[in-house]
Design a protein around this nucleic acid. Structure first.
Lengths: 362, 362
DNA sequence: GCTTGTATCCAAAACGTTTTGGCTTAGAAT
DNA sequence: ATTCTAAGCCAAAACGTTTTGGATACAAGC
C-alpha cells in the first residue's frame, strides 16, 4: 500500500463541475473544434453555426477553463508584481496610487495581476519560480536599486517586464518614470528665484535611484545658478518616508537661516508643514515649502492649500503605463520607455509665472 | 484558407522552453510517474531513487508547470480579491494595511493573490468568471454591504470565500472583523465618563455595515448611560473618508457646546485635530478627541501624540486572518468567524484606568 | 464529366502534469 | 515448492483546451 504525499493536499472536492467544451459539443452535435473556433472568431465556421454555439454557450453558462487554455497556449494572461516585504516597509501610500492605475489598466486588457510579498532575500527566488512554473507572462518591477539583481535576472531570462523607474540599463527594457531630475531641478530653481539663501532638502531613501537622481538635480541647479552647495542642508528619510517629515523638519528648523523647505514627497511636506507651523513660522510669509506632489487620492490637501508649492505628477497614470508597456511586450510589440509628464502647480500667494513666481522672498 | 481569430492573440513566441518532467525522466531513465511521486513525497519510491530525482531536479532547474498542475488537480492555489473601482474610491490607506497582511499570509501557504479592480456594475461578472474559468480557489470579500450580492452569489455557487466584516448571514460563511460595536460602545462610555455633555461623532460611510454598527453602538451607549440621543451631533463621511475629517470637524466646531470629537478612523481624527487646533481649541485641555486606530503603518502619529485617545486594532492582523480562513476553506477544514482583538490605548494626560480615565472634563 | 475552388466541418495530437491500477521482483511464510 | 506480502516501479488515462492537417460537399470553370 502506498500513502499520500507528505504535505497532505486534500482536494477541495465536491466542486460543482463546470460545463466544458465537450458538454457544449454534445449538446449541439458538433465537434469541440468547431466550438473552440466559433468562440474564438475563426472564419471557417458558418454563421448559423457560430450563432448556435454562442447562444448555447451563454445558455449553459460555458466559460473556457482558463487552466487548460494556459497549458495549451503557454500564456497565462497574468503578470506578477512582487512586493518587498522587509517587515513593515512595503506599505506606502505611493504604492497604492500606482496600484490603482495598474489594476485599472490590467482589467481593460483582461490580464490578471498576481501580487506577492517576499522578504528581500527571497525575492529573486520568487521571480525564478514564476518564470519557471509558467504562472505569469511578465513582471512589474518596482523601486529599482543600482544594479538591481531582479533586472539582471529578468534580462537574462529574456522575459517581458517593465520597471517603474530607471537605472543605467534603461535602454534594454521598458520603463515608466516621472522626470525626477527635471522636476527637482526646476523646483530648486524656483526656490532660488525667490531669493532664498538656505534650503533644507528632505529627500527620500537613497537606496532607491529616484532619490539619488533628485539629489543630483538639486545640486546641479545650485551650481548652474551660481550658488554654493552649502546652500542646502541635506536630509535623507528612510523608505517609506514616514516619521521622517516631522522630525527632520524640526531638525532643520533649528537653523534659522533656512527659509525654504524642499520635500521629496507631499507626505513629508504635509508633516513638515505641521512642524513649521508649530515653530511659529508662517508658510508663504517667512518660509517657503516646496514638494513633489504624487497626487495621492486619499490625501486631503485642502487644509494645506496655498501653503505648499508643488509639482504634480500622477502615479496612477504611471501605473497604467506600466501595465500597458508590459502587456505590449507580452504581445511582442516593441518595447519603449515612458516618461510621465508633470504639472507645475503653485500655491496661493503666487506671483508671476510658474517658474519665476511663488512666495517671493528677499 | 482560414484566418485567425478576430482579436489577434499573437503568441509570445521564442519563450526558452522550460525543463519538463519528461526531460527529467529521460535524463534519469525512470518514468514520469516516478518523478512526480518522488517529488511529491509518496512512499512508493525508493530512497535512493528519490534522492536521485531531487538532485537532478535541482541540477536541471526543474519546476513543475503550474498550469498543468492546475488543470489536472483542479486547484489553482490562488485566491481572488476583487476591488471596487468606482473611479477613485478604492484607494484607501486602510486597504493597504489589510493587503500587507493578506500578502504576507498568502506567501506562507504558497498561495497567490490575484487582484482585479472592477466597476461596481461589473463586479459580480468578475466573480462569476473566476468561478467558472477555474482561475481561483476562493475569494476575499471586502467592505460588505447589506444583503451584499457578492455574498449571495458566492453562497449560491458554494465556493470558498471569506468576508472582511459581517452582515446578517455571518453564520453561513467565514469572516474576519474587529469588534466595531464593542469598541465604539466603550469609546462613547469613556467620553461620557469624562463628563462631556455634547459629542460630535464623525462616522464612516453608512453604505457599509461597519459604519452602521458603530453608529448603533454609540447610541446604545448613550441610552445605557442615560444620556439623550441629542448628546451627539452625527456626521457621516463618504468612503474613503478623506476630505471629510477637516470639513466636518469645522462644521462641528461651530457649536461651542461640543467638547468631544469621536472619529471612525484615525485618518479622520488627525485631520480633525488640525481643524481643532486651528480653531484655537486645545486637545486634552478643553476638548477631547477619540478615535479608532487601525494602526496604519505609514501614518506618523508622533506629532499628534497624546492628543488623541484611541482604540487600536490591527488591520494587518485582519488581513492575515482573512487569508488563513479562506485557505482553510479551500483545504476543506472547518469554517469559522474571527474577531480581531482591539487594544485600548490612551493618549497622554490620561488619568485612571483605560475605560474610566483620559482627559477628564467637568 | 473532370478539375478546381471554397465553405464548413472534424479527428487527433499536443500541452505537462497527477493518479489509477497495475506489474515485477525479492523475500517471508506456509 | 508454493503462496503471500511488500517494495518499487510504470503505462496509460485523464484534466479541458487549441491547433494541425485534412475531409467532405457543393458550385463554378473548363
Amino acid at each position: 500500500m502506498t500513502t499520500g504525499p507528505n504535505r497532505s493536499r486534500k482536494h477541495a472536492g465536491a466542486q460543482n463541475r463546470n460545463v466544458t467544451i465537450k458538454d457544449l459539443a454534445a449538446e449541439l452535435n458538433v465537434s469541440i473544434t468547431t466550438i473552440s473556433r466559433a468562440l474564438n472568431g475563426y472564419t471557417d465556421v458558418g454563421e448559423k453555426t457560430r450563432k448556435k454555439v454562442i447562444d448555447a454557450a451563454r445558455r449553459l453558462g460555458y466559460t473556457p477553463n482558463r487552466n487548460a487554455q494556459r497549458l495549451v497556449t503557454r500564456r497565462s494572461h497574468s503578470i506578477a508584481w512582487v512586493q518587498a516585504d522587509d517587515d513593515n516597509k512595503f506599505v506606502d501610500p505611493h504604492f497604492v496610487e500606482v496600484m490603482a492605475g495598474v489594476l485599472r489598466e490590467a482589467r481593460i486588457d483582461h490580464y490578471d495581476i498576481v501580487m506577492t510579498s517576499e522578504t528581500p532575500e527571497r525575492q529573486l527566488a520568487a521571480y525564478e519560480r514564476y518564470v519557471r512554473d509558467g504562472s505569469v507572462d511578465g513582471f512589474i518591477v518596482d523601486l529599482p536599486r543600482p544594479n538591481d539583481p531582479r533586472i539582471n535576472f529578468l534580462l537574462e531570462a529574456d522575459v517581458p517586464f517593465v520597471v517603474h523607474g530607471r537605472e543605467d540599463r534603461q535602454d534594454r527594457y521598458g520603463w515608466v518614470d516621472v522626470d525626477n531630475y527635471g522636476n527637482f531641478y526646476n523646483l530648486t530653481k524656483l526656490i532660488l528665484a525667490n531669493g532664498h539663501k538656505r534650503i533644507a532638502f528632505i529627500n527620500g531613501d537613497e537606496r532607491f535611484l529616484y532619490a539619488t537622481t533628485r539629489r543630483q538635480a538639486v545640486y546641479d541647479a545650485l551650481r548652474d545658478l551660481g550658488h554654493p552647495p552649502e546652500t542646502v542642508m541635506y536630509l535623507e528619510g528612510t523608505h517609506p518616508m514616514v516619521e521622517a517629515g516631522f522630525q527632520l523638519t524640526e531638525l532643520a528648523l533649528a537653523d534659522p537661516s533656512i527659509t525654504a523647505f524642499l520635500y521629496s514627497s507631499i507626505l513629508l511636506a504635509t508633516e513638515g508643514l505641521t512642524a513649521v507651523s508649530r515653530a511659529g513660522r508662517v508658510p508663504g510669509q517667512d518660509v517657503m515649502i516646496a514638494s513633489m506632489n504624487d497626487e495621492l487620492q486619499y490625501l486631503n490637501l485642502a487644509p494645506v492649500d496655498g501653503q505648499i508649492t508643488y509639482v504634480r505628477s500622477s502615479l496612477r497614470t504611471a501605473g497604467r503605463a506600466l501595465v500597458a508597456e508590459v502587456i505590449r511586450q507580452c504581445e511582442r510589440k516593441k518595447t519603449s520607455g515612458t516618461l510621465i509628464p508633470s504639472l507645475f502647480d503653485l500655491g496661493e500667494g503666487v506671483s508671476g509665472d510658474a517658474i519665476a513666481g511663488s512666495v517671493h522672498f528677499a
